[in-house]
Design a protein around this nucleic acid. Structure first.
Length: 287
DNA sequence: AAGAGGCCCTGATAGC
DNA sequence: TGCTATCAGGGCCTCT
């Protein structure tokens, strides 16, 4: 579900709420996530004090004072809910992912702090938790990942060199975490729209100028999305909490058959399935 | 070695 | 308080 901007919003909220707090108890109600939560999980978290909450790509990284810690990946449908136990039945609403209403089903993991509970909810169970013992283990986990769009190593030279001779279409590469980390299906379509590149274009056929546009708009689109609190696609019922608003800025995603929003463009937004994922593009400015 | 496709899972919605 | 098919923001694995 969440791409880099949404995970960043969750990270910011967690930082406010659980940094420097000590884990008192861990309850695993369903260990069958994408990867099975192992028997050591509880023990590795028990009584640990949270030193920092980082994010790499779409992954949350929670590090303890002793440099051990754990990673959370939210998969397609994972959400994190924070429950302040002093306020009965009230959940923080610092972001879309912190609904004031706790879902009834699929609350698989609960991490209890002194006055606050962190609850991991995930209907599809594509998300997972993974513990690490030290910096080296953590680094190893992400060693095969490409740079984030904001990274200096994601530059024009890198993109041009990487995509040269590649037969696959560019949409696939934006989703390929080995090429660039953190972009998902929504932002891939949006970035290509701003870059005026058809998602089916073979990577090897991209001009240098187009590669530079991908570089520019990958940064811009994601930064803007973070600024707007991410994208909230499906409307949860009975929510009074603050949602992300970037979905209002979508230029192509889920806008099939609507007019292109670009001034003076007579194009229509089309939907095409590429590698089993929906892609949206303007049939005029993304020829 | 790059690329294509299957698969993990539940829930919402559309169409019959 | 029908049934069935399709689709959903991810990514790992296997096969060619």
């Amino acid at each position: 579900m969440p791409e880099l901007p949404e995970v960043e919003i969750v990270r910011q909220s967690l930082e406010k709420k659980v940094k420097n707090k000590v884990i008192q108890k861990v309850i695993v109600k369903n260990r069958n996530l994408r990867f099975k939560i192992n028997s050591k999980f509880k023990r590795r978290l028990h009584k640990k004090k949270i030193k920092k909450i980082d994010r790499f790509s779409k992954y949350l990284i929670i590090t303890f004072q002793d440099e051990s810690g754990f990673i959370i990946h939210l998969g397609m449908s994972g959400t994190i809910h924070l429950h302040d136990i002093n306020k009965k039945n009230t959940f923080t609403n610092t972001s879309f992912y912190h609904s004031p209403i706790l879902p009834k089903k699929h609350n698989h993991v609960e991490i209890q702090f002194n006055k606050i509970n962190l609850i991991y909810n995930d209907p599809r169970r594509f998300g997972y938790f993974l513990t690490f013992n030290n910096k080296i283990e953590l680094k190893k986990k992400f060693s095969h990942f490409g740079p984030e769009p904001f990274s200096n190593s994601f530059n024009a030279e890198y993109i041009i060199k990487y995509l040269k001779k590649k037969e696959k279409n560019i949409k696939n590469f934006l989703l390929d975490q080995k090429f660039v980390s953190g972009i998902g299906n929504i932002y891939a379509s949006e970035i290509l729209f701003f870059s005026k590149i058809n998602p089916c274009t073979k990577a090897k056929n991209l001009k240098k100028k187009e590669c530079r546009k991908i570089l520019l708009y990958s940064k811009l689109v994601l930064k803007e999305a973070i600024k707007k609190g991410g994208s909230s696609i499906r409307d949860f019922k009975n929510i009074n909490g603050k949602k992300g608003t970037f979905q209002k800025d979508f230029k192509v995603y889920q806008r099939e058959n609507l007019k292109c929003s670009k001034p003076k463009c007579s194009g229509i937004i089309k939907k095409k399935i590429i590698s089993n994922r929906s892609s949206f593009f303007c049939n005029y400015c993304q020829k």
